[in-house]
Design a protein around this nucleic acid. Structure first.
Lengths: 342, 342
DNA sequence: CTGAAAGCGCTTACAG
DNA sequence: CTGAAAGCGCTTACAG
């Protein structure tokens, strides 16, 4: 018993309005060729019968589903904790909604298989195209999509196999500005809290490059002993900072590659009886909502996350509709925000 | 130009395998009646052509879409920040995945309209049923679903208009245990940090009831001046606690109705130069992942969030398949966890 | 401006 | 065990 609810179809509406069902279809699709009175009659009938067009049935002849997928090659509860991603989703959802599309979520769903999130979507042609969150685990999946010529856009940096496009912030320049600020304040030993050493995301490489570039401009060289690793969570930032503080010659400033780790850094610094920014300055990255509320308010590099989501979605629609993407890469500005932690 | 990619259909497979396309359909659907050799030939052909069944086409004759919706009547970036919800989603996703269903996300999508998330789903029959996150803003939407006889299950407490079911933890008992623990430790003035005063969620009412019940068992009466309000975020817990500490006769213990506010409470207590739990004990609710990592580790009431998501999803499938739900309400156990904050 | 026909990719009884 | 027919709810040319 799949359904007991009786469906109202286009034919019921046609009968009610006294027209052919093709005419009903034209009204639904806003074809200009329908006489106003006819349209009105049909609209009334639709209203009266509470008719809802069936998306799947509309899609069949049109060869599309009106659904876009969002692939997150992790367990939902892991990555979802990332406020930056959540802001992106908010942008995606608003944009999809505006275009009459629905958003499907595809995670690894407890399968333990990185590719599962991708294969699931491919397996049954359920989406017209997909947005992929770039992670260390998404490269194989993107390659798979490219091989199948499946329309997709990467949120992050990605192998630009056509048809596809990558949307990300200018990580390098953002990191460069942050480091420049620290340098201007007189800091010479700057600790870096990077993402995980293995399977790093391209964005982290870029931030590191920007940092080194700024050092170089100031005539300094990058000291690898000042770089430690976290896993993007707050506790990991705390632990990483403890390592930094235990150094024979500890840094006077710390640049964490995301805000959550920066917050952890501040905790660790305080726990060690020192103050931010007086004893040690701290800078984060992302400008998540909690950054401004933190104590002290976090100096950070803002990524336009929501906008990145919306932009990626718009580009995906272009690709789906057969228009070539505007570029293989869209770089959004990153903005350095000075608050009180540095 | 919707698509340039040529689709491989059931007919292509049939031709390749030298059988009728109905036979291919039977193989896909695991009908027992296909001769093993025939099945093998078809399977090979499927493999060779890289055939993917079209979900929408399968669904049309079956009157279903193989999609379930998750309605979150807020902007995506607001509610998603709730770790408890994220754990639920993780459970939903795993369960849907196991049953071959896809998960559609429906938020208010920047429309500013609470009902939009519901109407979107109804508008085009895109999902076979929906899961609704109970919030102060979801009641009207649930009524709408019930009126349309749309299969849905509420994550939380909800008006149990059939066909539907509500899945939640035993909030009352959990809160009772927490308060009992505080009482046992000798606390007599217990501050409460509740959710927002207007548009409260039923779960908060239940927690309050459990708290009052415990007080009553101890022969105490509830003092309304000890109850303040937050909005579930950490900073709000901090502010609420400042109010409590400013009282002429401040509480010696604080019970916050979620973990994030409890964390804010601990910050505020420390900022006031006092210690947790020595000067003031603090208890939270939910047991989000960060609770155990907090300093001090948070004493709290655990909700089986992931399991609640999975259970609700299973029940939704029952309803979709025409089986009546096992109950109109499923209550999962809440477990009181003693750590160090109280 | 509006009907009648054909078809989207599949499933479901019905025969054989 | 496997074909042939009809149909799911819609759209898209094609006539008129």
């Amino acid at each position: 018993m799949a359904t007991t609810r009786k469906r109202v179809t286009i034919k019921d509406v046609a009968a009610e309005a006294g027209v052919s069902y093709q005419t009903v279809s034209r009204v639904i699709n806003h074809h200009a060729s329908v006489r106003p009175e006819t349209r009105a009659r049909v609209l009334e009938a639709i209203e009266r019968l509470n008719f809802r067009p069936n998306l799947a049935a509309r899609g069949l002849p049109q060869q599309r589903t009106f659904i876009i997928g969002l692939v997150i090659p992790y367990e939902a509860d892991y990555l979802f904790r990332d406020p930056h991603l959540l802001a992106q989703i908010s942008g995606i959802d608003a944009e999809a909604n505006a275009r009459g599309y629905n958003l499907l979520l595809s995670t690894e769903g407890g399968s333990g298989d990185d590719l599962e999130a991708f294969e699931r979507l491919l397996r049954n042609q359920v989406a017209d195209g997909v947005l992929v969150v770039e992670t260390a685990r998404s490269h194989a999946g993107c390659a798979l999509l490219a091989r199948e010529q499946y329309p997709f856009v990467s949120l992050g940096y990605a192998p630009g196999a056509p048809p596809s496009c990558a949307v990300h912030a200018n990580d390098r320049e953002g990191a460069r500005q942050a480091t420049l600020h620290l340098l201007k304040k007189g800091h010479r030993r700057i600790g870096i809290i990077n993402g995980p050493p293995t399977g790093a995301v391209q964005a982290m490489e870029e931030r590191l490059t920007g940092h080194r570039q700024a050092l170089q401009e100031a005539g300094l060289t990058f000291d690898p002993t000042l770089m430690v690793y976290g896993d993007y969570t707050r506790p990991s930032g705390q632990r990483a900072t403890e390592q930094l503080l235990a150094l024979p010659d500890p840094p006077t400033a710390i640049f964490a590659f995301n805000d959550r780790m920066a917050m952890g850094a501040i905790w660790a610094i305080r726990a060690a009886g020192r103050r931010v920014p007086d004893d040690i300055a701290v800078i984060g990255f992302d400008d998540i909502p909690a950054a401004a509320d933190f104590s002290p308010p976090l100096t950070t590099v803002r990524q336009p996350s929501k906008e990145a989501g919306a932009t990626a979605t718009r580009i995906l629609f272009d690709i789906i509709e057969g228009n070539p993407p505007p570029a293989t890469e869209v770089v959004l500005p990153a903005e350095f925000i000075i608050r009180e932690s540095a």
